[in-house]
C-alpha cells in the first residue's frame, strides 16, 4: 500500500519555505477570510522585500507597517466598517512602498491569466483612467474585424499564496464554507505553491465530510502545505464560523495615531508566538464567538 500524501506543516515551516523578495498572494477580502496566523508568522520571521498581492485588509496594513513590503499590488485596503486602513495610509503617505494600483476586477483577471499560464488577458477595464499609465499597463489590438484596442492585463504570477480555509485534510483536500469565497481559488491557481491554514484538520476528508465535497473550491494539486491553526483568521472574519473582531480593528487603527510606531505595538498585535497571541485574545473559542457582521 502506498504511503498517504501528508502535507502537514507548522506555520513556521510554511514561512521557512518563503524567501526574501518573493511575490506572495494573500486570499480573502478586506477584513474577511484572511490567513492572519500565517501573516503573523511572517511578521515573527525576518522575511522582507516582499511583493504582496491582496484584496487588502490588516494583512497589508501590518506587513507594510512592519517594513516587510517592497511593492503592493492592490485595488483597495479597507476594514469595511473602518473604511480606511490607518497603517497602510501612514506608509503610503510616507512614500515608503512601490505600488501597482489596479481595479478589483483587473486583479482577479491578472490572477486568472497566471492560472491559465498566459502572459495577459484583455479587458476594457482601466481605459479612460489613471490606472493604465500609473501601473505601466500596455494595450493590445483585437486581430479580428472589430480591431478594438484593449488593455492587456499582465499575469500576476505568485511565488506563493496564503489562504485560510474552514476544513482541510492531510493531503490538502480543502473545504471552504461561507456565503462568499472571494478569489481564493484564483490565488491558489496563480501560485507556484499554495499554503493553507485551516480551522479544522482531518486525516481523510472522505471519512469526515463527504457530503460537503462541493465546497472543495480548488484541488489538492494546488496545495503544497497545510497548517492546523484554529482561529487563524482572527481578527478577520471566517463565515459561517465567526465575524470580524471590530473592537480589535478599532484598537489597531487607533494605534496608528497613538503611539503611531509599529515597533511599539507589534508584540500586542502579533504576539511573540501564536500561542501567546491566542492566549491574549481568549483562544479559538473566543474567536468563534465573535458575531457575524451586519452589512
Amino acid at each position: 500500500m502506498t504511503a498517504m500524501l501528508d502535507k502537514r506543516l507548522s506555520a513556521a515551516e510554511i514561512v521557512s519555505r518563503l524567501q526574501d523578495g518573493m511575490t506572495i498572494g494573500i486570499g480573502g477580502w478586506g477584513p474577511r477570510r484572511k490567513p492572519m496566523a500565517l501573516v503573523r508568522e511572517i511578521l515573527r520571521s525576518g522575511l522582507k522585500d516582499l511583493t504582496i498581492v491582496s484584496y487588502g485588509g490588516a494583512d497589508v496594513g501590518m506587513l507594510c507597517a512592519a517594513g516587510r513590503v517592497k511593492k503592493l499590488v492592490f485595488a483597495f485596503v479597507s476594514l469595511d466598517a473602518i473604511p480606511l486602513e490607518a497603517w497602510f495610509r501612514k506608509v503610503r503617505e510616507a512614500g515608503a512602498i512601490e505600488v501597482m494600483e489596479l481595479d478589483e476586477g483587473m486583479l482577479q483577471w491578472g490572477l486568472k491569466a497566471a492560472a491559465f499560464r498566459l502572459p495577459f488577458l484583455p479587458t476594457r477595464v482601466g481605459l479612460g483612467t489613471d490606472v493604465v499609465p500609473l501601473a505601466g499597463l500596455k494595450t493590445v489590438q483585437s486581430p479580428y474585424a472589430d480591431g478594438e484596442v484593449l488593455v492587456a492585463m499582465p499575469a500576476l504570477r505568485l511565488d506563493a499564496a496564503l489562504l485560510h480555509v474552514n476544513r482541510c485534510d492531510w493531503r490538502g483536500n480543502v473545504q471552504l464554507l461561507g456565503p462568499d469565497l472571494y478569489y481564493d481559488e484564483w490565488f491558489a491557481r496563480a501560485a507556484d505553491a499554495t499554503y493553507v491554514s485551516t480551522e479544522v484538520l482531518v486525516d481523510r476528508m472522505e471519512d469526515h465530510f463527504p457530503g460537503d465535497a462541493a465546497a472543495n473550491l480548488f484541488e489538492r494539486s494546488f496545495v503544497q502545505g497545510v497548517a492546523h491553526l484554529p482561529g487563524g483568521a482572527h481578527p478577520s472574519s471566517l463565515p459561517p464560523l465567526h465575524g470580524p473582531d471590530m473592537a480589535w480593528f478599532k484598537a489597531y487603527s487607533d494605534a496608528a495615531r497613538d503611539p503611531g510606531d509599529w515597533a511599539a505595538v507589534a508584540e500586542r498585535f502579533v504576539g511573540a508566538t501564536e500561542a501567546d497571541y491566542m492566549a491574549g485574545i481568549g483562544g479559538p473559542e473566543a474567536v468563534a464567538a465573535v458575531p457575524l457582521a451586519i452589512y
Binding site: 503617505e93 483612467t129 489613471d130
Partner: peptide, 23 residues
C-alpha cells in the same frame, strides 16, 4: 495631492471604479 508614489492623503484605492465606469 502629492504624487502617486507619495500621496498627501491616501484613501481607499480605486476599488472597482475603473470597471464600473467602463461597463
Amino acid at each position: 495631492g502629492g504624487d502617486h508614489a507619495r500621496p498627501r492623503t491616501q484613501m481607499l484605492g480605486v476599488r472597482g471604479f475603473p470597471g464600473n465606469s467602463i461597463h
